[in-house]
Design a protein around this nucleic acid. Structure first.
Length: 281
DNA sequence: CAGGTC
DNA sequence: ACTGG
């Protein structure tokens, strides 16, 4: 069991995993599916209408995982810089829609799109002294019209969100089943959905389906690989990856970083964005 | 140009 | 191609 006080809430929220969070005074208030969470570092307090231990992956043997990925020097430095950073286990539907919305967008804009969806399709819920809209239910989003989705400023992602919601509503996508499948099979299934490519599938797999070998390769990850690992992954560049190059690179990455590669990616991503002074939520 | 995808 | 900075 890990120490409860070793979680750095701000670092964890501000690491590109979650978007529907706001800092109100000293508290971070966020939405995970139908749940509302209120997290505070000082004095330390974690409150949730749902299961906070599940959200924070308290079942992970963090000591073992960090020790495992620390064999790489750059990852070891990244862990030191962002101590208390945790991987989060998100509501799968929210995670799925969130990262479909993430394509070719900024963190601030992704947050805005998701807030619009919650305001329009979510249910008002009270928790503590706060009242906010939860994330839309599958059925609600599946029944949304294109115009309603376009009103949420989703742009070309509107049709992806519509199709993706219909797929879940019809059980073509079943998160409980995907969770049981191995990484490759789950990824293949997710990629059948319009709007989900390799990178988005990896984010969904890592942040909501317990696939710790998922290693989302985006622009930042490519820069990281080029900057720190060019001798290990020979043909990396800044150019967009083709389908096959992504898969080949991912294979090599898992061989190098190991079964907890996704944890490595999270620390590296956080480190490099902070280094370049990129803003979060 | 933005944590990509079709 | 949407959209916002």
């Amino acid at each position: 069991m890990q120490k409860t006080d070793s979680i750095n809430i701000e670092t964890t929220i501000n690491s590109g995993q979650v978007f529907l969070w706001n800092k109100i005074g000293e508290q971070w208030v966020g939405i995970d599916g139908q749940d509302i969470m209120i997290l505070r570092q000082k004095p330390y307090s974690l409150k949730s209408s749902g299961n906070i231990d599940n959200f924070l992956r308290r079942d992970d043997n963090l000591e073992k995982i960090l020790k495992n990925i620390s064999t790489d020097r750059t990852v070891r430095d990244a862990i030191k810089q962002s101590s208390g950073l945790r991987l989060i286990r998100q509501d799968p539907f929210q995670c799925y829609i969130s990262f479909i919305c993430s394509s070719n967008s900024s963190i601030q804009n992704i947050k805005s799109m998701l807030e619009n969806l919650c305001r329009k399709f979510g249910v008002k819920k009270e928790f503590g002294k706060y009242q906010l809209h939860t994330f839309p239910r599958v059925e609600t989003l599946a029944n949304a019209t294109m115009n309603e989705l376009l009103d949420c400023r989703l742009g070309f992602r509107a049709k992806y969100v519509k199709e993706a919601s219909l797929a879940v509503n019809s059980n073509k996508i079943d998160f409980k089943e995907l969770r049981k499948l191995d990484y490759q099979t789950a990824i293949r299934s997710l990629k059948n959905i319009l709007g989900i490519g390799n990178k988005v599938a990896d984010c969904i797999a890592l942040f909501s389906l317990d696939k710790l070998e998922a290693f989302p390769i985006d622009r930042w990850t490519q820069r990281i690989l080029l900057k720190y690992y060019k001798d290990i992954f020979c043909d990396v560049s800044e150019k967009p990856l083709t389908e096959k190059k992504y898969e080949k690179l991912h294979d090599d990455i898992v061989k190098y970083f190991g079964p907890y590669a996704g944890y490595s990616q999270q620390f590296l991503f956080k480190m490099e964005r902070d280094l370049n002074k990129k803003s979060w939520l």
